[in-house]
């Protein structure tokens, strides 16, 4: 799965670059608008270390944000699974709040918390929190009747067992959502950095944008894409290993 993720990214990225070059040469655009392959190579050689460190910084924030959002979504999803007033309230609140674009709230976060690590983390966590929450709520609210029946009628059902049954029965869905949310966490962090932060690859892209340097932006995109492909591939592999471990070791 990991090599496939990388191949897929490389194919798409190279196709994108090919289209850019085709446009450049078709319309005779200058190197200031779309850089030549040589420019691109030189820029890559010049900035890959600096940008690599920036991507690592962004990825670390994204990972922490994702972990925070997974933890929060599980907590809220477990509370919201109940068919009580409180459970319904949480579900309705989750559906409504997620409709509000986080990017629109981002300036408030930067005004209140400044342009440092915490703001990036908060925005990353918020962006990937709601999709995870909606999935967790859906999974946790849906009884697995044919398994739960016995435990209910014999008075053995506890909330921990209920959560365990529903999570286990939907392990594939959960791992897919979690690995998918990695993209959102990364996107959230980059958006936060792009808007106002003082570090990370989003911040570097903002500077490249002010310099109108497409080479740097393309190099940044390449590094973001390859890092994300590796991270997602690793998450998927971990998900598969958890699934196998859960069913084999006991």
């Amino acid at each position: 799965m990991l090599p496939r993720r990388i191949y897929q990214f490389l194919i798409i990225f190279l196709l994108g670059i090919a289209v850019l070059f085709a446009v450049k040469y078709l319309f005779g655009l200058s190197d200031y608008v779309i850089p030549s392959p040589a420019d691109l190579r030189d820029t890559l050689a010049a900035v890959y270390k600096h940008y690599g460190a920036d991507v690592a910084s962004t990825l670390s924030v994204a990972i922490i944000g994702q972990v925070v959002s997974i933890f929060l979504a599980l907590m809220v999803g477990i509370l919201g699974r109940q068919t009580t007033w409180f459970g319904s309230f949480i579900k309705v609140a989750a559906y409504n709040v997620q409709a509000y674009p986080i990017v629109a709230i981002a300036p408030i976060i930067f005004i209140l918390f400044g342009d440092g690590f915490f703001s990036r983390l908060l925005i990353a966590a918020m962006i990937c929190y709601f999709p995870i929450l909606l999935s967790v709520l859906g999974i946790m609210s849906e009884p697995v009747k044919e398994i739960e029946h016995f435990y209910r009628v014999t008075g053995r059902m506890r909330w921990q067992l209920e959560v365990k049954i529903r999570a286990f029965e939907n392990l594939n869905k959960l791992t897919t959502v979690i690995s998918g949310s990695a993209t959102l966490a990364m996107a959230g962090t980059i958006v936060a950095e792009f808007i106002a932060a003082n570090a990370g690859i989003g911040y570097s892209i903002r500077i490249a944008l002010y310099q109108s340097d497409l080479s740097k932006i393309l190099v940044a995109l390449f590094l973001i894409g390859i890092t994300l492909a590796v991270y997602q591939g690793l998450l998927e592999a971990a998900g598969r290993m958890i699934g196998k471990g859960v069913t084999v070791t006991r």
């Binding site: 044919e146 398994i147 029946h149 016995f150 009628v153 014999t154 053995r156 365990k164 049954i165 286990f168 859960v246 069913t247 006991r250």
Partner: peptide, 21 residues
Amino acid sequence: YSYNLERLPDWSSVGRHLDKI
């Protein structure tokens, strides 16, 4: 009431499930 479509969770062997209940 028991019915024929019920399942035991697959996270452990049926023997261990039976021991627990």
